[in-house]
Simulated scan of single mutants.
Amino acid sequence: MRGIHFQMSHSQQKRLARAQQQLLQSAAKIPSSVCVNVGDAIPVNHEDGILKGHGTIDVNGQVVATLCGVVERVNKLVLVRTLRARYKPEVGDIIVGRVIEVVPKRWKVDIGFNQDAVLMLSAMTLPDGIQRRRTTVDELNMRSVFEENDVICAEVRGLQHDGSLHLQARSDKYGKLENGQLITTSAYLVKRRKQHFHFLEQYGVDMILGCNGYIWVGAHTDLQSTSRQGEEPDVSGQKESQSTISEALNSVDAVAGRKIRENICRLANAIRVLCSLGFSISVESILETLEASITWNVDIKDMLGAEFYVRIAEREAERRSSKSNV
């Protein structure tokens, strides 16, 4: 467990140790030829022409792993892909990052890579939505689009000839993220999937699982406009003043806004629990953890306490154990 700062009782420590042992036993049932440690020989069945790729070395005619990870084969190429590693960008990756500097014609963005990414002014859709050449006026107004510390969503465009990593945001789904929380975790916990944008309609929340391990949880962008539709107070044929209607609408928005902020905090804490336990992050696992906190009547603040961590670990251990016994 990483990033946890609280005291556990003796019984909680024993329960957590038991759950970890069950998780290790479930993992041990994975074929040993798939996972390797440093110094392990990788069986290649005495094939000729084997190419030794990343994470391997030739020792006395044997292919030996130099990294801990999973062995992968691509025709004759043998390589080891590490389970825990820094984010390695691939073209098309959906990422979440934070603007750290505004320079001429570009924004520099922290995405958890070994260098800052670059979002060119010409590689994004401007607020007016018109496709046109960028002018000096656009360059002067760059801070009105993004400024330092803004959280944004973009797509990896690729590495340029100068070695810099470029992003692009040529769609309405990309851009500045507001009214939410940014959770940073290890990139290896977030697997690449077909869908990284999720609208959790039952909670009124948008969630973006960045391939770089940066996760955004925020209020749905269309929530304010949709929440007011059909929610005007019933005047029962009586004429009410405009101020009374406005006060009623503001009251509805205040209640809805508070509920959504609670949902955002509960989702964010569910993600933090899964990250600290080292479990893979997916929309399914996040919702399962959130629903467990509701079912167990756990307050939002108590989700970061020892008891909830232990119960989530026990539940996952039991699930994997029953799955492996099938």
Rank of each mutant, 00 (worst) to 15 (best):
Cys265Asn: 09
Thr185Met: 06
Gln21His: 15
Asn250Lys: 03
Val283Gln: 07
Thr136Leu: 14
Ile4Gln: 02
Thr56Tyr: 07
Gln242Ile: 14
Gly210Met: 11
Ser236Ile: 08
Glu316Ala: 08
Ile50Pro: 10
Arg98Met: 13
Val310Leu: 08
Gln202Cys: 10
Lys76Met: 01
Phe308Asn: 03
Glu284Arg: 10
Met1Arg: 09
Ser236Arg: 14
Val145Thr: 06
Ile4Ser: 05
Arg228Leu: 02
Gln160Trp: 02
Gln115Ile: 02
Val91Met: 11
Lys323Gln: 10
Arg15Asn: 06
Leu177Gln: 00
Lys88Gln: 13
Lys108Ile: 00
Asp40Val: 00
Ala313Leu: 06
Ser186Glu: 15
Cys265Ala: 15
Leu126Phe: 07
Gln12Arg: 09
Asp253Phe: 03
Gln25Met: 09
Ala169Asp: 00
Asn212Ile: 07
Glu314Gln: 05
Arg134Lys: 04
Ser293Gln: 12
Arg133Trp: 15
Val252Thr: 08
Gln62Ala: 00
Leu79Asn: 00
Trp107Phe: 01
Asp162Lys: 06
Val283Leu: 05
Asp234Thr: 09
Arg320Asp: 04
Val298Lys: 05
Val63His: 06
Asn263Thr: 12
Ser251Arg: 10
Asp93Met: 04
Ser280Asp: 14
Glu314Asp: 09
Arg266Tyr: 01
Thr244Gln: 10
His5Ile: 14
Leu140Glu: 06
Gly257Ile: 06
Arg258Phe: 11
Tyr174Ser: 07
Phe197Ile: 04
Lys76Cys: 05
Glu72Ser: 14
Arg311Leu: 14
Leu277Arg: 04
Ser11Phe: 00
Cys275Thr: 13
Ile30Gly: 05
Lys108Leu: 01
Ser321Gln: 08
Glu316Lys: 10
Phe199Gln: 10
Glu291Thr: 04
Val70Thr: 13
Gly163Val: 06
Ser9Cys: 01
Glu262Pro: 08
Trp296Asn: 13
Tyr214Cys: 04
His196Trp: 03
Arg258Tyr: 09
Leu189Cys: 02
Asn60Glu: 13
Met8Phe: 00
Tyr87Ala: 00
Leu126Cys: 02
Cys153Thr: 08
Ile208Arg: 02
Val63Ala: 06
Arg73Asp: 04
Ser32Thr: 14
Ser33Glu: 13
Leu182Asn: 05
Val71Ala: 08
Val38Asn: 11
Ala117Ser: 02
Leu119Val: 00
Gln202Ala: 11
Ala154Arg: 00
Ser276Ile: 09
Pro127Leu: 03
Asp58His: 12
Ala17Arg: 03
Gly237Glu: 06
Arg311His: 07
Ala313Asp: 07
Cys211Asn: 13
Ile260Thr: 05
Gly257Pro: 05
Ile50Cys: 06
Met142Lys: 09
Met120Thr: 05
Ala27Gly: 07
Glu232Pro: 11
Gln21Asn: 13
Ser122Met: 11
Ile245Asn: 01
Arg133Gly: 03
Met1His: 10
Asp206Tyr: 15
Asp138Met: 02
Ala187Cys: 08
Asn114Tyr: 12
Ser243Cys: 07
Gln12Asn: 03
Ala313Arg: 00
Ala254Leu: 15
Leu23Ala: 06
Asn45His: 12
Leu23Arg: 02
Leu287Tyr: 15
Glu291Arg: 15
Pro31Arg: 04
Ala317Pro: 10
Asn45Val: 11
Lys191Tyr: 10
Val99Cys: 01
Asn60Arg: 07
Phe6Arg: 14
Cys211Pro: 00
